[in-house]
Amino acid sequence: MRGEPIPRYYLYGDQGEDVELDFLHIEAIRERSGANYWRISPHSHPDHTQVLLVREGGGVIRMEEKALPIEPPAVIVIPAGIVHQINFLAGTDGYVVTASLGCLRRAAAGDARLDVAVARPGVYPLAGTGLNTAAVEDTFTWLHREFIWSAPGRRTVIMAQCMRILVMILRLSISRDDGGIAAPNRDYDLLVRYRALLESHFRDQRSLGFYAEALAVTRARLNAACKSRAGKTASDLLHERIVIEAKRHLVYSENSVAQIAHMIGFDDPAYFNRFFTQRVGIAPGAFRREARRSAE
């Protein structure tokens, strides 16, 4: 009898497919973990990275094959696609940040060092690192306050605090060279490298053959890795990235649909309309109108 597959979650218990480019969520650890008897069953987040600040309590986290103790105060980095399980001590508290890969790319602002640091799983106790613990806690607290408080400039402040967290992770990864790092497998490594290539080429390269050749694997091997770690084919991930970029332009720019089509690599705006409609369920213009109505 075959076992049940490890669940893939949007958030801990919420499954979903449509991942927005700038999505970020933060909540207190006790909100979900307490309700689940302080135990988080094995699962992964194919499109989101999680960063935890554990202020008090502790426990053990298993990432892939390795179990790591949580000794607060500590920061935990769980990159997208990493299977993890957490057994918290009762009463553990702190924050859980769940951020889409696109959100992290925006916050990194082109600094490759930040991208690399947040893609590395690990548990980082703050003691002895030189980081100011009060400042670390203040960053998470401020992010949480802005997340639940609708005030002018909210979006800008959230991204600024997210960038601060990425810088903290970079410094922690340098101060703790091993970081108790859990070693991902080859499928995970291939998926990470494929997603990095997508960021550079999704506007002008639609052929999986291009990506497979650049990664020195076959298309079948690339597909197998994507299915294993993200639950989607390589083509699904490519098309998802194109759609996310289109949505971002539709919501945050004044460019026409035809202009947006050309900006993301479509020579024929009519084909872009069909591509978008097939995958989103409504035409680009209708998506823009709905998004703007909901923001009013």
Rank of each mutant, 00 (worst) to 15 (best):
R8K: 12
P72G: 04
D18L: 13
Y10H: 12
T98N: 15
G110F: 04
E64R: 05
G110E: 01
G16F: 07
Q50F: 02
A74L: 07
R62H: 10
L104T: 07
S41K: 14
G57C: 02
H25F: 14
E20M: 12
L114Q: 02
D111G: 02
C103E: 06
G34F: 00
D22E: 15
D111K: 05
G58W: 04
Y10V: 02
A35E: 09
G94H: 02
G58L: 06
V60R: 05
E17A: 13
G110L: 01
G59L: 01
A119G: 09
R39E: 12
E20R: 13
P69W: 05
G57K: 01
R120Y: 09
E31A: 15
R30L: 07
E71W: 05
F23L: 09
I26N: 05
R30V: 11
G102Y: 03
P72N: 03
H48Y: 13
P7T: 04
S41M: 14
E27I: 06
A74M: 07
V97D: 09
K66C: 00
G13V: 08
P72W: 00
H48P: 06
P7K: 03
R113P: 01
D115W: 01
I82Y: 06
W38G: 07
P46W: 08
V75N: 01
G94P: 03
L53H: 10
H25S: 14
R105L: 13
I86C: 06
A35K: 13
V83F: 00
L101S: 08
G13E: 11
R39K: 15
I78F: 00
G91P: 02
G94L: 00
V83H: 04
D14R: 09
S44C: 15
E27D: 13
L68E: 08
E17Y: 14
V77M: 00
G81M: 09
E65L: 06
P69D: 12
Q50C: 13
I78L: 09
